[in-house]
Simulated scan of single mutants.
Amino acid sequence: MNNFFISEPPFAAPARRLVTLLNKGLHFLKPGYQLTAAPNPVVDMNTLEQRINYFHLLDATLAAQIPGDVIELGCFTGQCALLFQKVLQMHHSDKMLHLYDSFETQFTLQGNVANVLERNFALAGLPMPVLHKGYFQQTLPSQLPARICFTHIDCGFGADALAHKEVMLHCLQTVYPRLSKGAVCVLMDYHDRRSGAIGHDVNPGVKLACDEFLASKPEQLVALYGNQISHAFFRKVAD
């Protein structure tokens, strides 16, 4: 089944309802494709451009047969995790997807965050990932897999930049030793004005932590285009 995206302006819930109605009509016509509302960064916490980057980075990692599982630190309702699980399924991979979150921060969501995530996976017909509920200081590194091939760190919680930096440093310090050679680490909200990024610097603690942590490491950070939301990645040089 092919997907065609319809752009959605911020807070345009009617666009999603329109897409649902159009897909019901297409179901009877059986044209071989369906419509999908483009991600709204206010609701989905990521953009279409970011999802394209996630797909290609994880797809290349799996194609290269990098050892280890896939993890996400900060998953909210699973909008990125759904894509990760879909790519794993596409590769017929036996790698596990591990999600780490307190599931307490609701942002604009009404209801239980973990329940919404589980419902999203059920509606997508995808296997449930392994959920690790709790603050990162409690779950990392004790609940991390022994080897990791792909990591997405998205732990913005609207705190002071220095407080956020400390959380990010804890994540990097615990995850980095588990990354296999060739593993990819994607960093949500890494905003580098020198790269020409047009996104908003919503969590400056990410850059503060990453620049400090990687200063003594051989890895090079690569800024990615994410439209409204900035992000970057590095690839592990050696075990």
Results as ranks from 00 to 15, higher is better:
116 V>M: 11
45 M>Q: 12
15 A>D: 08
140 L>I: 04
169 L>E: 04
208 L>M: 07
83 L>G: 00
232 A>T: 04
84 F>I: 08
118 E>Q: 15
9 P>R: 12
144 L>I: 03
172 L>S: 02
105 T>S: 11
218 P>N: 00
85 Q>L: 07
195 S>T: 05
11 F>V: 06
9 P>E: 10
155 C>A: 15
156 G>K: 02
212 E>W: 09
174 T>R: 00
223 A>D: 02
206 V>F: 01
149 C>H: 02
217 K>P: 10
65 Q>C: 09
200 H>A: 13
43 V>Y: 12
45 M>A: 07
213 F>E: 07
220 Q>R: 08
116 V>P: 01
132 H>S: 00
226 G>K: 00
221 L>R: 04
105 T>R: 11
84 F>C: 03
198 I>W: 02
154 D>V: 00
5 F>T: 12
212 E>D: 12
82 L>F: 06
198 I>R: 06
35 L>T: 02
236 K>T: 02
224 L>I: 01
153 I>E: 04
190 Y>M: 01
92 H>V: 04
200 H>M: 13
174 T>P: 08
57 L>W: 05
154 D>H: 05
160 D>L: 08
105 T>Y: 09
20 T>Q: 11
128 M>A: 14
164 H>L: 14
34 Q>R: 13
163 A>R: 11
51 R>V: 06
185 C>I: 05
238 A>G: 10
141 P>I: 06
46 N>M: 15
214 L>F: 09
32 G>P: 01
206 V>S: 04
38 A>K: 00
41 P>F: 09
170 H>R: 02
234 F>K: 00
29 L>G: 04
179 L>G: 03
77 T>A: 10
97 L>T: 01
40 N>C: 15
57 L>N: 06
116 V>K: 13
177 P>A: 04
128 M>Y: 10
159 A>T: 10
207 K>W: 01
49 E>C: 10
31 P>L: 08
206 V>T: 13
238 A>I: 14
60 A>R: 12
223 A>Q: 05
10 P>F: 13
233 F>M: 06
140 L>P: 10
24 K>C: 08
160 D>I: 03
113 V>E: 09
